[in-house]
Design a protein around this nucleic acid. Structure first.
Length: 559
RNA sequence: GCGCCUGUAGCUCAGUCGGAUAGAGCAACAGCCUUCUAAGCUGUGGGUCGCUGGUUCGAUUCCAGCCAGGCGCGCCA
């Protein structure tokens, strides 16, 4: 039985204020019809626990000064539950102070809900998140690491916020890049068995290409050179891409990123999905022929220009299969499709949006989140990242150098659309100062205290209300308020599709806890007080754990 | 040239549909281990929010124009 957590404190206060507005309107004190109010969390202490600017918003329609509107709202809030005091401040803010005893209940709420604390009821919405989707032509690099970390977190965040979420990786295992990979491996292979062959000019030069060729030589010898070139090439291509895809899968597994579905581009061609998608667009007049090629009339759908889907030489472009891919996703009935792309693909958004429109879906159905590029720096010098030249830092390198948890969380400490610099030397040097340790250490401390309590036989669960009433310190109230805010943080972050907000919350909660721990003893001779504090500590541990889980970061019991 | 993103403390970055005295971490400096873990805590200093205008009672936030950086503008992906 899942406990459906009651409304958060913020929402409860918002409802009380909405009711007050309704009463004010019904009694004729207020002329305008009030819309649902938005509570905010004041930046400064002394401004109450929650604030609303509703009086200022209404002032114009009421043709009265904001403070006068605020005063009448305060009158209608008289006697409301939970509320200790409402102050009018500044230009007309309503600053609501919640009764101290109202906070204690959050401890029991957190402990009873456990893993479910912060989880919203099912929204009924289904969302598909497609991310990473790197071509299997080489190992994952740092940029993929950012996309993987954010995709993982975004998917988890939406799931916690109530959406049904599918995580998908689209495998580009067809087309020109695949052929180049095959030719590159072929060249290395031939050279290794004594037939010097140059790697094609646009081919892949990385050392991993030669390694693949070498492993094929070790297993199969030189038998491919006696086959017809086309047959051998096809076989080597498949061997190479399967091997690289395996590596990608294992890198992602090492990183803790799992996908629910892997869609193959080849399969889209083989199954006829590409032809069907193009035919369907043609039937609507969005496909035409010109200059010996086949075009998608995306300019009629908001794109900058029309795009080729089949080249003069008869080969389909990447766009053709991508149209088929997105058609299938739409037909699968997802309410929202999220594509997480690197900034170097953002010019692609217009044509995919064109498809969405052609298929008669609203723009909101497709969300393309663009990750600005990651610049990798080593000792202050930029490291070029190119699969073709073969000089790049792989995701695996990063995980091995700075650790999985640190890598995952580092990518969450900035907004996705903010460019970031990743200095490997710095990341190593600062590893002990990394936010991830700070947060994990807070969790380990909660675990350590609970262990000690168990050893000393201090009984604290289930928490008694009379004991919780002993939580009166400023630090304790601060922690209670943070715990109460967690469901709001999750919901607001999900609404904005911005998991990094949860990361900042984590840092704040960990900070509050460290300060509390240092200033006050949890386990003392005062058993009821100890019980109350232990319950609070346990609740902090639960929320730290739940929030870390969104990022796929571990919550160690000891460090 | 056009499009998208970015510009906030020395550095890396937050900043809640426009709101109150713009915040955090790192770095610097000064303190704190007889304690349930010092991977921690306490304090100090540090800002023309890129620039200029506009809208508004009110702009770091919205709009326009500049400046600087990144990315894109292919019958590549």
């Amino acid at each position: 039985m899942t406990t459906i957590v009651a409304l958060s404190m913020k929402k409860r206060i918002g409802e009380l204020l909405t009711e007050a507005l309704d009463r004010a309107h019904a009694s004729g004190d207020l002329r305008s019809v009030p819309s649902p109010v938005w509570m905010e969390t004041p930046k400064r202490e002394g401004f109450g626990d929650y604030a609303s600017a509703v009086a200022m918003t209404l002032a114009a329609a009421e043709q009265r000064p904001p403070r006068q509107v605020a005063e009448l709202l305060v009158r209608h809030l008289q006697g409301a539950d939970l509320i200790e005091r409402v102050d009018i401040a500044g230009p007309g803010y309503l600053n609501v102070t919640v009764r101290r005893d109202a906070w204690w209940g959050v401890v029991s709420e957190v402990l009873e809900a456990g893993e479910a604390y912060g989880r919203a009821p099912a929204s009924g919405r289904s969302v598909q998140v497609e991310f990473v989707s790197a071509n299997p032509t080489g190992p994952l690099h740092v940029g993929h690491g950012r996309l993987a970390a954010v995709g993982l977190a975004l998917a988890n965040l939406l799931a916690v916020a109530g959406d049904r979420v599918e995580r998908e990786y689209y495998v580009n295992d067809a087309g020109r890049q695949m052929r180049l990979l095959g030719e590159s491996v072929w060249a290395r292979y031939c050279t290794l068995v004594g037939r010097e062959t140059p790697v094609p000019e646009d081919g892949y030069q990385g050392a991993y290409v030669e390694e693949i060729a070498r492993s094929i030589v070790e297993r199969d010898g030189s038998r491919y050179v006696s086959e017809p070139r086309e047959t051998a090439l096809a076989e080597l291509t498949t061997l190479a891409y399967e091997r690289l895809l395996d590596e990608i899968r294992s890198d992602l597994a090492l990183y803790g990123v799992r996908f629910d579905a892997w869609t193959s581009e080849r399969e889209l061609f083989r199954s006829g999905s590409v032809e069907r998608a193009i035919e369907s667009l043609r039937a609507q007049g969005y496909i035409f022929e010109a200059d010996g090629a086949l075009w998608f009339r995306s300019s009629a759908l908001g794109d900058e220009k029309d795009r080729v889907v089949r080249k003069q030489d008869g080969e389909w472009t990447y766009l053709a299969s991508d149209l088929a891919y997105h058609s299938k996703k739409l037909e699968a009935g997802f309410d929202v499709l999220i594509d997480l792309w690197g900034a170097d693909h953002h010019g692609y958004v217009g044509r995919i949006r064109g498809l969405i429109r052609a298929m008669g879906h609203p723009d909101e159905r497709l969300r393309v989140e663009i990750s600005q590029l990651v610049t990798v720096v080593r000792k202050g010098k930029p490291v070029p990242m190119s699969k073709r030249t073969g000089t790049f830092i792989t995701l695996r390198d990063v995980i091995e150098e700075v650790g999985r948890d640190a890598a995952l969380l580092t990518f969450q400490m900035r907004r996705l659309d903010s460019p970031m610099e990743f200095d490997l030397e710095l990341a190593k040097e600062q590893s002990s100062e990394n936010p991830v340790y700070y947060i994990q250490y807070a969790h380990a401390r909660t675990a350590g205290i609970l262990r000690m309590a168990a050893e000393q036989g201090v009984n604290w669960q289930p928490p008694q209300e009379s004991d919780l009433a002993r939580l009166v310190l400023g630090e304790e109230l601060g922690l209670l308020k943070a715990l109460a805010a967690y469901p709001d943080v999750v919901q607001e972050a999900a609404h904005a599709y911005e998991p990094h907000r949860v990361a900042y919350f984590l840092q704040e909660l960990a900070g509050l806890f460290h300060a509390y721990y240092y200033k006050h003893r949890i386990i003392t001779d005062d058993r009821p007080l100890s019980a109350a504090r232990l319950a609070l500590v346990a609740a902090v541990g639960v929320v730290l754990r739940n929030a870390l889980a969104i990022f796929g970061v571990s919550a160690p019991e000891r460090m």
